[in-house]
Design a protein around this nucleic acid. Structure first.
Length: 279
DNA sequence: CAACCCACCTGACTGC
DNA sequence: TGCAGTCAGGTGGGTT
């Protein structure tokens, strides 16, 4: 599923199509994904106008106008997709496809959510209570924001025995870094993914923060990474996959030194690294 | 508190 | 061809 660059790419696509448009109708085919969907609250968004689309971590936040403004929170889990169709006047809606769970009909646009594994989420909350929503309130800083810097990473990694990769994938410490970009950031920083987080010095933290910011920014520029499920709102693929240096490249030659890239499994997730570039 | 494991769910792919 | 096993971009909850 999408990590931060994929969700940010989606946000930009959704923003172009949906901002300023009125929501006419919501259709729900089931009342739960990972969590229950607040069916009544979602339906009551109808007739409101979408004013703003934000991203926080891997959540898309659609802000709706009203006397009491509300926010639709969307998470794609591992396999979620969000598509937007143009719906010219008089044209009928397309048939529902397999695993399509809900639709939002905006003026001239149809937003469709498809998620085979159903690890995704759809919730609605008052805008004034967004900050205290249980899924958002515990999240760490945005990796591309100014709160995330080497001093911060150094501080939160002290005396931590978990691996560097596990540390940077912990959303309480920093959000948006998933399994692909965690390996890529470790490679760029020259750090082995399984090295103990607490063993990093300040210089390592500078390198790692820079690497995380760099790889996420470059991936956003490329429209994200398409390996299997991920596509943009117009179903276009992201093309960062070809720029991955280690992820999914077990046995291939490292682009920097030609050593064979290795894969290790930690907590059921694969990590990839170059044994000679990453000390 | 930190670290670790597992579950949630379906589909794609591999090897026998 | 069939079937079992493995893996997949997330993340919350339970246990040690």
């Amino acid at each position: 599923m999408p990590e931060l660059p994929e969700v940010e790419t989606l946000r930009r696509g959704v923003e172009i199509h949906i901002t300023g448009r009125q929501l006419h109708k919501v259709e729900l085919r089931r009342k739960d994904l990972r969590w229950p969907i607040p069916v009544t609250r979602v339906r009551k968004l109808a007739s409101r106008r979408c004013r703003l689309i934000e991203r926080r971590a891997k959540y898309l936040l659609l802000h709706f106008d009203g006397v009491i403004p509300e926010v639709a929170m969307i998470h794609l889990g591992m396999s979620g997709r969000l598509f937007i169709d143009l719906t010219p006047r008089g044209e009928t809606s397309p048939d529902w496809i397999e695993h399509e769970h809900w639709r939002m009909h905006f003026e001239g646009r149809l937003m469709r959510f498809i998620d085979a594994r159903r690890f995704g989420m759809l919730d609605v909350t008052r805008e004034s209570k967004l900050q205290v929503h249980p899924r958002l309130s515990e999240l760490g800083p945005e990796p591309l924001g100014s709160d995330f810097d080497a001093d911060y990473l150094f501080r939160v990694s002290r005396r931590r025995k978990i691996s560097i990769k596990t540390l940077i994938m912990n959303a309480k410490l920093v959000v948006g870094v998933g399994n692909i970009y965690a390996s890529e950031a470790c490679f760029r920083a020259g750090l082995r993914p399984r090295r103990a987080a607490g063993s990093m010095n300040r210089k390592h933290c500078v390198a790692l923060v820079d690497s995380i910011r760099e790889v996420l920014s470059e991936a956003i520029e490329s429209g994200g990474t398409t390996i299997r499920d991920y596509h943009g709102v117009s179903q276009e693929a992201g093309y960062f996959a070809r720029k991955l240096r280690v992820y999914g490249r077990e046995g291939e030659a490292c682009g920097s030194c030609a050593s064979r890239i290795r894969r290790v499994v930690e907590a059921g997730r694969s990590s990839f690294y170059c044994p000679s570039c990453q000390g």
